[in-house]
Design a protein around this nucleic acid. Structure first.
Lengths: 333, 333
DNA sequence: CGCCTCCATTGAGACGTTTCAATCGCGATG
DNA sequence: CATCGCGATTGAAACGTCTCAATGGAGGCG
């Protein structure tokens, strides 16, 4: 059906080896032969068969990326960063969405292994560590994104979540708030818990301030809406005067829900999120947030993966970016 | 490095053919041999090499999806739909982002062709038609998403954009607005132009109403912000009393920009978007919009692609969903 | 004129899988 | 006891590419 390298060779009146050389080592081949080969390629509409190349080469030019939630712009930005850097290395990125589901996560890891991807970038859901070690033993390295490797066995690119939580809570305290509520989920997920710990530290530093935890099922807009509803249904004296959300999706949900109950942001309740996604600034009460350099994180992770691929046994490296407080109207005054 | 089927065969004391049969036609093999093979697979940590399978089979189990903008939740939902349906057919989806860039679009198409993907779902930027025809001639079918095939040469899944534009403008007129502004870009993109035409029709039906077009570079949040700024800087008498945006991202940008200039939505200017992404409802002035069944569109497109793959020369089919008006606070009164 | 170099080209494997025709072994049947 | 039938198993071939050792040929030098 489709032309192969042999057809091209025949048509150009050369051997298959020469065609391959035109494709891969152009300098080795005479200008004359090269141009005949190129003409034949154009005539026949020949396109390299990647499966055959990969089989021969023993490895692919693809990198797998597993994210927790494609609907979260933080992850799509991270993916764009990885993709951009991959381009520079002639690699392509296969994007998979685990939707915070262990079964989906492991299905994709299996798929990636069958495809012999060059390596894997992953924001793991829970302890994917054992599985990743297995993959590494079989020659597929991973770099963790958005989360440190607990045992430092893998390289990782993350943000100092504890400090991010501290910055957020510190800011709320600085503008005079004292009854802070933290919400998001799942509460036992590392990133979410680190942010809580940071907030705790800020609150503890300050006399006469409290931190309440309101766990959520996950960290989607709808979870924020539920949290906002729960807060609004309390008697005013029991409401927090500031809410810190595990991410911006949750914060947007809370914002919407509070507004629909006539609770003013920031007058009655100040509100801050995490990630600084585009939509945070676009909300009509523009949302304060803690920025993660998502694009840069994606680029960095991919670069580290490539380094690991090239230089077999280099030690794992933990890159931790510092988050940045972004103040907008939702925490004014 | 990695165990192959021959190693497994040796360890299990059978031939490679038998191992392959265990993997692909379990019923052909005796329970005894099968269990020995399975044990060997587990012992050696054997994982099938997809490249070799694909080379042998002549085609892959992957479908390519090219979207215009991964940052637009409409497309990520569509991707989720395609992915979900792909699962059911044992296929996986490779997601690529053209970012409305012709060069990127054709790079990805080339990549997909090299990978001999089973087929391609694409929201084409401009006339990708010639290229897609080429791919089809070489055995790779495509289904267009979010846009009809102009010459009906390809199957497609889209929404009746003209009617969607009509619904939006009709609604604005029904609530008493008369000076409507339409913004988004690029203005020559099919979907965007169809929505404009629909709006035009509604306006023409109504006496004493006007439709102004404000073209934008693209249809991102920032383009909306620019449009909002432009509107706000006019003398009040020259401002529209309603704005219809080519999509919700633009509408959110306009919303933010108008608010920051003290222009009230919907009191001074009513606002409606397109797509009904999650964030539309989550905006504090919840955004009216025209809903596209994005998840369903993704599922349908993938199903059509599979049908096309199975049944060689079936005629192209155009599936057109009807959009649905969703009224929220941004067009109240 | 013969030999040596050097560059361009050749062609035979090898990558790991699946398929399929051929073979094997065993119980049933005549 | 020979033969047949049938399910289980085998092993070679093929998919398309790249690599590498081997070959060919032209030109330079002694």
């Amino acid at each position: 059906m489709t032309a192969n390298i042999r057809d091209v060779a025949e048509r150009a009146g050369v051997s298959v080896g020469t065609v391959s050389n035109v494709l891969n080592h152009n300098e080795r081949v005479s200008p004359d032969a090269a141009s005949r080969v190129r003409a034949a390629i154009a005539d026949l509409g020949y396109v390299r068969n990647d499966a055959a190349r990969q089989l021969r080469a023993g490895r692919s030019r693809t990198v797998g990326l597993v994210v927790l939630d494609v609907r979260n712009p933080f992850f799509t930005e991270l993916a764009r960063g990885a993709e951009r850097e991959a381009d520079r290395h002639g690699l392509s990125v296969l994007l998979a969405n685990s939707d915070e589901d262990i079964a989906r996560e492991s299905r994709y890891l299996a798929l990636f292994e069958q495809q012999r991807v060059r390596g894997i970038l992953i924001s793991p859901y829970q302890q994917a560590g054992a599985r990743l070690r297995e993959l590494r033993d079989r020659g597929i390295p991973s770099v963790l994104v958005d989360r440190r490797s607990e045992d430092e066995l893998f390289s990782s690119v993350s943000v100092d979540d504890e400090n991010g939580g501290y910055l957020a809570a510190r800011h709320l305290l600085d503008i005079g708030r004292r009854r802070i509520l933290y919400t998001g989920g799942p509460i036992d997920m590392r990133q979410i818990d680190d942010r809580r710990r940071g907030a705790r530290r800020a609150v503890d530093e300050t006399g006469a301030a409290s931190l309440e935890i309101l766990p959520a099922r996950a960290s989607q807009v709808e979870d924020g809406r539920a949290a906002g509803h729960e807060i609004a249904s309390r008697p005013p004296s029991h409401r927090p005067d500031a809410v810190f959300c595990a991410n911006d999706l949750v914060a947007l949900g809370v914002l919407q829900s509070l507004a629909s109950h006539g609770i003013r942001v920031p007058d009655d309740v100040a509100l801050i999120g995490f990630d600084d996604i585009d939509f945070a600034a676009a909300a009509v009460v523009p949302l304060s947030s803690v920025r993660q350099p998502s694009l840069l994180m994606g680029e960095t992770a991919l670069r580290m993966l490539v380094a690991e691929t090239d230089d077999g046994e280099r030690p794992a490296e933990q890159v931790v970016f510092q988050p940045e407080l972004v103040v907008r109207a939702s925490t004014a005054g």
